[in-house]
Design a protein around this nucleic acid. Structure first.
Lengths: 301, 301
DNA sequence: CCCATCAATACCTTTAAAGTATGCTTACAA
DNA sequence: TTGTAAGCATACTTTAAAGGTATTGATGGG
């Protein structure tokens, strides 16, 4: 049996007349007669009774008509769903997230993507940089978000945004009282740095900036993530350099101070990473949204 | 698209290798490659990524695999259901019923049929003889049950059972006291007859029997149906001749007396009627059950 | 660097679907 | 009753498409 048989049978059943059905199907009558006979033979069931004015359905034929219409509609739906999946409009996107970006840039991006592709299910996985790269290679995620990604042969990197550096300090901290804080002022105060884990990371960035500015930073603590860092700053354990998006972390007792006289390249980048060989339509769609959002929503130089 | 494409795609998806899938499908590799390409072209969707070791599914391909399996299973089910319908095992049987036979023979028959063909829905329609014939011609029913059916060119008749005549009388009736009642005794007593409506009917049968026995019956009342007739007999309005199956009607005050010295042909028949040109498998099935039940369950000479 | 594996392409064969012509049955009308 | 028209079925031809064989091209492993 064949989908053609179903189409033909539906036409014949609806016209109650093989000749008219043939006209409607843009074929001649004899092949249609034969296809219907073939269908009946294959099922071993008489679907039509031949009358002098045409044909009429048997009980089995009536049932088969319903079934045939049902099958055709299911095939149609399957086709459409597959096509939407092929256009990246239907399916699932596994995303690796990490760091302060989840406080600002990532939600904006994901919301924009969801608005454009509402039928794509977004699954978030919190993992650090090394885990993200591993997960990309094993195809457990399709995109990851991270900062300071070193180039890799199989992983493509796409800049999503750059942010200014701010200083998080307790309101009791001496720098909190200053109307403006220069980057060089940091040489006089112990710093809380983050994150620990895979290098190079934000710590290396800060160290480089300090060296470029001509001083060696006093390191108070190295902690795992921005939240811990800001919390320590709030508790007076030191000043903490954070990307702009961390200001969403409104912990009690914390003030965020802008910095003046920053060395060049002091902005921190947020990138998304994905397999260079991945041609999945959902990824293409996502990267399109990234481009679009970067131009419209996120701050950049 | 074609069911063949689905079958081929499922094989390829399961083998993850076009060559192996071709072997499994008993065709060679190139046509299979082409059929898959054709499917992809038609959908406009890439379903497979070609790898050096074979192929693997894209996200859209994974979705389409599910859809394809689903469609095939639905087609399979539709085929089976249609075949069962073609064998009279699935569908609907509209039955016209009437008279005292609904008290005994018809329930036995319908129960036997339901046991043999549990997936056939039986719909009962109470209608008299004329209505049954009309309904058969209009195909509103497929079989009817009746007594004393005159031959008709388009309606076939099949004897289901014959029954003896009994006399229903009030326990206060003079005949109730006799140890045996002869048919000729009826000449001395007024009779309640039924049914009114389409002739010839049971009334004509009784009249003919009386004439054959050499007397003119005294007619007390003519009523619409057996239940009314027996009720009148119970009330002392006269004796009422009934088929054996009416004894299921155990109205208070009624006794059923067998008759002796009955004239020949005194048994009453129950027949089923159906369109002579009807070849519906469910009807064939039903008639088969009728034959079977008549031999095993119902009394006959 | 070559070989094995596997998909893709080119070209030919075979199957089956579509077309044309015609026959057969039956209802309807003269 | 017979002629006629409508409509399905059959016989035969054409054409389109599925399948086969041989070969090429790409890629990872030894």
């Amino acid at each position: 049996m064949d989908l053609r048989h179903l189409k033909y049978f539906i036409a014949v059943a609806e016209e109650q007349n093989i000749g008219r059905a043939a006209t409607r199907l843009h074929i001649s009558q004899p092949p249609l007669t034969r296809q219907i006979q073939q269908l009946e033979d294959e099922l071993g069931v008489r679907l039509l009774t031949r009358t002098p004015r045409g044909v009429e359905l048997t009980q089995a034929g009536t049932l088969f008509l319903e079934e045939a219409r049902n099958i055709r509609s299911i095939v149609e739906q399957a086709t459409e769903r597959t096509q939407r999946a092929g256009q990246g409009k239907l399916g699932r996107l596994d995303v690796g997230i990490f760091g302060t970006a989840i406080l600002d840039a990532i939600p904006k991006l994901l919301l924009a993507f969801r608005r454009a592709y509402p039928e794509v299910k977004i699954v978030l996985h919190t993992m650090n940089k090394g885990e993200q790269i591993e997960a990309l290679r094993q195809r457990r995620i399709t995109v990851g978000f991270n900062r300071m990604v070193a180039p890799l042969p199989d992983i493509e990197t796409k800049l999503v945004a750059t942010e200014n550096l701010l200083l998080a300090v307790s309101h009791a901290h001496p720098l909190a009282a200053q109307s403006s804080v220069s980057f060089r002022d940091l040489s006089e105060h112990p710093l809380v740095l983050f994150p620990t884990g895979a290098r190079p990371n934000f710590i290396d960035k800060v160290m480089t900036l300090c060296h470029d500015a001509g001083f060696e930073p006093q390191i108070s603590h190295e902690v795992g993530d921005a939240i811990t860092g800001v919390a320590l700053a709030a508790g007076g354990f030191g000043a903490c350099l954070v990307p702009e998006s961390a200001t969403s972390l409104a912990l009690p007792g914390v003030v965020y101070k802008p910095l003046t006289e920053l060395p060049p390249n002091s902005r921190v980048d947020l990138s998304c990473i994905y397999r260079r060989d991945d041609r999945a339509p959902i990824l293409e769609a996502f990267l399109g949204v990234v481009d679009h959002v970067r131009e419209n929503l996120l701050g950049h130089p």
